[in-house]
Nucleic acid binder design. Structure first.
Length: 419
DNA sequence: TCTGGGGTCCTAGGACCC
DNA sequence: TCTGGGGTCCTAGGACCC
């Protein structure tokens, strides 16, 4: 029995947040701008109707917006974060199993709900009453189809903000009407590659043999194809996994040409990143620094590079992180370019509690060592090449191989020999 | 019969998401 | 002149291990 999954998406979230606190903006075209007012990152329906594009550079559209009477707001992420938390709290009333997917989206498991559509309409009404934010609800057997359903809920006025895509016939009809890039996980480049092999619509992708898809496009696209058929490949993750990496980066107001200036910027980002990390009680041993030129300026020579610096001992120390970032910078720095952006990324974050200044060894390394030892032990006991023979299907050795593979879940390789 | 090959780690880069 | 910032996952190739 398939479990219905709902995708709840806040309509024009940032624009809607601004409206909650400035009701005079109701019914007006609004645009929210990115960090340093660089480009459009959110639009109200009215602004969309006027033809305002997502990502439109502010400097090219300033006069145009004024002429059209579009209201402009700089982004206020603290506000949006608070509003998001309110929306999510409200959603929890409607299902115990909820995955917060982004600041303005959540997946909900609606298993056991008899009247899905009514439930969803009730949810919509409650969120609007409690938070002032309008949402759309798409319901389907898989996340990918729920995304499609949500799109319909949003664009088709007759839906009233709720759309169910639970049966096969409806799904086919819906997939016929949309393009490849309307599918979650397929953007420009993948769509081009799919088209080259003759798949021009989501329906084609759905109906091609998944094995062939996997061969040609990898596991990610295979999953998408299966999900389009209604086969769930992506679970609802109601416990959010710990963060794996974090970034501090900015575009420069004017291009940076001098190493000294870049030094300063990178040091600032390294500090900001370290600060963010400590706030979450994390530590890192892998620091990435990256620099890039302005890819919008086709007339300029382009260069982008990144460098990872491994510290082997995880740290939360800003000084060490900054030093590592600057070391990376000197490795990739090339003069003669107009740099537009730079940043510092911290990878493989671990809880700072496990570090405590002592020698840090990632669990993976311990496990892989144990696995190596296990492999040799098996080879020694059963003869060289046992693992290889196992792959050919000998029954006794097959069990060994299975144990061997599951070594990733245990650090005691001795267990492996208990067959 | 074949008789160090299978496996992991690391890194950079691509592609996608909101 | 002026085009965001912060994430995730996957892949491929080479180094390395025993």
């Amino acid at each position: 029995m398939t479990k219905p999954i709902a995708l709840i998406d806040c309509n024009n979230f940032y624009a809607s947040c601004e409206r909650v606190f400035q009701p005079q903006l109701m019914g007006k075209p609004i645009v929210v701008l990115s960090n340093n007012d660089g480009c459009v990152i959110a639009r109200s329906n009215e602004a969309k109707a006027l033809g305002v594009e997502m990502g439109a550079p502010w400097h090219l559209n300033k006069e145009n917006f004024e002429r059209l009477g579009v209201k402009i707001r700089s982004s206020n992420y603290a506000l949006y974060g608070d509003m998001s938390a309110r929306v999510m709290r409200t959603l929890r009333q409607f299902s115990p199993s909820l995955e917060v997917y982004s600041i303005d989206e959540a997946f909900l498991c609606l298993d056991g709900i008899a009247d899905l559509e009514n439930h969803a309409r009730d949810l919509r009404k409650t969120v609007a009453q409690w938070t002032g934010i309008p949402v759309s609800v798409g319901i389907a057997p898989t996340k990918t189809l729920a995304k499609v359903a949500n799109k319909i809920a949003k664009s088709d006025a007759r839906s009233g903000g709720v759309f169910c895509l639970m049966d096969d016939g409806q799904q086919i009809a819906a997939l016929k009407k949309i393009g490849l890039t309307d599918i979650w996980g397929i953007a420009h480049r993948l769509a081009l590659r799919l088209q080259e092999t003759g798949m021009t619509s989501p329906l084609d992708l759905r109906d091609v043999d998944p094995k062939l898809i996997r061969q040609a496009f990898g596991v990610t696209v295979e999953r998408i194809a299966l999900e389009l058929r209604g086969v769930p490949c992506l679970e609802i993750e109601d416990i959010s996994p710990p963060r794996k990496s974090l970034v501090a980066s900015r575009s420069f107001g004017r291009p940076v040409e001098i190493l000294n200036d870049m030094h300063e910027a990178v040091a600032t980002y390294a500090n900001r990143a370290a600060e963010k990390m400590r706030k979450q009680n994390l530590a890192t041993a892998n620091i990435v620094v990256f620099i890039e030129t302005n890819s919008f300026r086709k007339q300029d020579r382009q260069y982008r590079a990144s460098q990872t610096v491994n510290l082997s001992v995880a740290t939360a120390d800003s000084g060490k992180i900054t030093t590592a970032a600057l070391k990376g910078l000197s490795a990739i720095w090339r003069s003669g370019f107009l740099y537009k952006k730079a940043g510092v990324m911290l990878l493989d974050l671990v809880s700072a509690d496990h570090v405590q200044g002592s020698l840090f060894q990632p669990t993976d390394t311990l496990v892989s060592k144990a696995r190596m030892q296990a492999m040799d032990a098996i080879n020694q006991r059963f003869g060289r090449g046992t693992i290889r023979v196992a792959a050919t299907g000998l029954q006794a050795s097959w069990q060994l191989r299975r144990n061997f593979m599951s070594a990733r879940y245990t650090t005691d390789w001795r267990e492996l020999l208990r067959v």
